[in-house]
Nucleic acid binder design. Structure first.
Lengths: 246, 246
DNA sequence: TCTGGCTTAAGGTTAAACCATTAACTGTTA
DNA sequence: TAACAGTTAATGGTTTAACCTTAAGCCAGA
């Protein structure tokens, strides 16, 4: 019997799971969100009330709230009428998380840019097809703002990012817009240092933004793709300082 | 003087920033990670030691660790020689966060699938160009496994996801692979229920996987794009149960 | 009618204690 | 000598209770 090394009780006993209490609370809240019982804008009970509801200490509840907050699911306000409020969905938090992981995973700028190229070029057909007059007006406006900023020597990567994010919205696909917006978080970081090295780079960038807007107005997909392709390629060079040849 | 409504003290006083102490700690750790002072596998000092280093209470340190953990930057082990360890970069956590935000943002399945189509189709040129023999072998192997699972009526979405994730790795671009992998997290969830409704759908799916692998082996981009295009379109139908016509 | 102060409800932080888990050591025993 | 059992120490997990800070609302006095 015992000689087999595996008794007949094999499989009877499962590894006991003892997750953190705070994690259990987080999961409960997530379920409520998924099921629609909690929607953006809703306010969770106060910490002290949650203690009683869950039968745990306030510290534990607070840890759960920290996790939910870090996940971008709630924002917390202090003071009277404060508390944990379900956030309207925002990509900022996820973008930040993505940025952290990107910096940790030793991604080369070339890889990031290549990926960005795929997504932003891939979005162009939808954009060209679906952009409304309002969309196009907004793009021209942003391009002009960029131009003005360049003239005042006040061009920043944020202005460029705003254009790209607005451009993504022209596809009228929220998931796609969120994705591209997320990408521009990490890009911002990488570029922030590049800006020091090439402060005057805004000139051609805004120029291309304008040409991009024009191509979309004319519903000229090929032209848009051409400009975007060049635009991102130049970004890659800036980011890498030409150090990476990949 | 006072009639102007703005006194001469304008601009003298700046808004005082009082961020959470735990957030300050998180930021410090992130900087260390960014600067390479901390790399995956490293262990942070114990909670009690961090208290002394930062001059704060243990609860505050723990909140910071919760945030870092939720961001996927560290994993925490209990017991002797436990502690907070810098994680090797993993997309799982980000994918999970993405999934949470997706469920909250009322994205339609159509939007998600459309985005997935852009990314996965956009990746194909790179894949066809860069896939190694090992890559191709792995793809065929996964396709066969799927086939076998179908025969045993044991096909799951996880098997399909594994194929798509492995396929993404064939592009030899880590950023792109992470992105696609992140997307398959949320997809899994949406599909898990769809599986109930269409348990027999695996047949054509695995068939397409095999044809995809063949097209890549032949470096036939057009064929690969054709198959992938159809494949994702059918996924869209499954997810939406045909309820959304978009 | 403004201003300042008070109240109150909420999150932010601290302190000290205790529990649970894990790895390593140690000593006994067959 | 090898295996087992007990002990110890390091470390995260949780609780409790107290106090601080913030913000909204109210109210009385100049």
């Amino acid at each position: 019997m015992a000689a087999t090394g595996r008794s007949t009780t094999d499989g009877l006993f499962n590894r006991v799971n003892a997750p953190r209490v705070s994690q259990v609370i987080v999961d409960q809240v997530k379920v409520l969100i998924r099921d629609g019982a909690l929607t953006p804008g809703d306010r969770l009970p106060s910490e002290r009330e949650l203690c009683q509801r869950f039968g745990v200490s306030r510290v534990t509840v607070r840890e759960a709230l920290r996790i939910l907050e870090a996940s971008g699911l709630v924002t917390i306000r202090v003071g009277a009428h404060g508390g944990a409020f379900l956030t309207a969905p925002s990509t900022d938090r996820v973008g930040e998380g993505l940025a952290d992981l990107l910096t940790m995973s030793a991604l080369t700028a070339g890889e990031v840019t290549e990926t960005r190229k795929i997504v932003e070029l891939g979005a162009l057909p939808l954009i060209v097809e679906r952009a409304t007059d309002d969309d196009i007006d907004a793009l021209f406006k942003l391009a002009e703002e960029g131009q003005a900023a360049v003239d005042e020597d006040a061009y920043t990567v944020d202005i460029s990012a705003r254009f790209h994010i607005r451009l993504a919205e022209c596809a009228h696909n929220t998931a796609l817009a969120m994705l591209i917006q997320s990408f521009h978080g990490p890009m911002l970081m990488s570029l922030r240092e590049a800006r020091e090295h090439a402060p005057a780079m805004g000139k051609r960038g805004t120029d291309e933004h304008r040409r991009l807007a024009e191509a979309i107005r004319e519903r000229d997909l090929a032209a848009a793709q051409h400009v975007m392709s060049e635009h991102i390629a130049r970004t890659a060079q800036r980011v890498s300082h030409g150090a990476e040849q990949d």
